[in-house]
């Protein structure tokens, strides 16, 4: 790992100014994605700006119509949170299956959404549940936030501070995981509320995507059978040593069915 300057400011403003003062600064939250790529010399930021001393980023607040989850909440914290388990159980269950215990105890929601790994779980949770990403300067809807792999509209000096998840009538996440990495090969979040049904897929494509055909079918008939015959095209899906594109496309349908079933 190459040398870097380490900063641990105690305010959001301090974080932003440290980023602005750096040649190639990166925000360090849990480090579960950033540190491995630095270790492999695939990233060599000049400065790491840690969030560890910034107060108030690890709170989970119930705002009635939504839950606001601070950017530094770890996956383990979300999984164990009584308010998340009660209000959006699908979100708690999803967080409890990210990676392994070490990752869940270090990795954060803010880091995951800002990184936008195409096989991460949070992008599907955010898009599926219709979450809003809150930064130091604006609010961005999930549909606008998650681009193709690793792409987001975040500015270089912009910090995700929280994610707001609306309370929905029902939701569930079904994941087929890579046996080595535990990332999603195909992860599907299905959520329904008065506005309709959302189906968001992670792991299978170059970034999280919604399946409009499934959403429409489920709006008419919220049952596993309604999506059993709907498949996504394998064109453009990822392919690796664990799963080819065709298999991934198949798994999207199976995981969608299982998520619908789990919605009850």
């Amino acid at each position: 790992m190459d040398d870097f300057q380490y900063h641990a400011p105690s305010s959001v403003d301090g974080v932003l100014s440290a980023l602005r003062g750096a040649d190639d600064g990166k925000v360090l939250a849990g480090g579960m994605s950033l540190l491995p790529v630095m270790k492999l010399a695939m990233a060599a930021p000049s400065d790491l700006v840690s969030l560890r001393n910034v107060p108030g980023l690890s709170d989970i607040e119930d705002h009635g119509h939504c839950l606001k989850i601070g950017a530094c909440c770890t996956h383990a914290q979300v999984a164990a949170s009584s308010v998340v388990r009660e209000r959006i159980p699908a979100l708690a269950a999803m967080a409890g299956r990210i990676g392994d215990p070490q990752v869940r105890n270090r990795g954060t929601i803010g880091g995951s959404v800002a990184h936008n790994d195409p096989a991460a779980d949070y992008p599907a949770a955010c898009v599926g549940l219709g979450a809003t990403i809150i930064t130091d300067r604006r609010k961005i809807s999930s549909d606008d936030f998650f681009g193709s792999m690793f792409e987001t509209p975040l500015e270089d000096d912009e910090l995700v501070t929280a994610v707001c998840f609306p309370i929905v009538d029902g939701a569930a996440y079904a994941k087929f995981e890579n046996p080595a990495s535990k990332y999603a090969v195909a992860g599907v979040m299905v959520a329904r509320d008065s506005d309709g049904v959302r189906v968001a897929v992670t792991g299978a494509g170059a970034g999280v995507f919604r399946v409009a055909e499934m959403e429409a079918a489920l709006a008419d008939d919220f049952s596993a059978d309604a999506v059993a015959g709907i498949s996504v095209s394998s064109d453009g899906l990822l392919s690796d040593n664990v799963a080819g594109a065709e298999y991934r496309a198949h798994l999207v349908t199976v995981m969608a069915k299982r998520a619908v079933e789990a919605c009850g």
Partner: peptide, 11 residues
């Protein structure tokens, strides 16, 4: 080597 780490070599 395609499977050069524990991200894709499954122990």
């Amino acid at each position: 080597l395609v499977t050069g780490s524990y991200m894709n070599y499954t122990m």
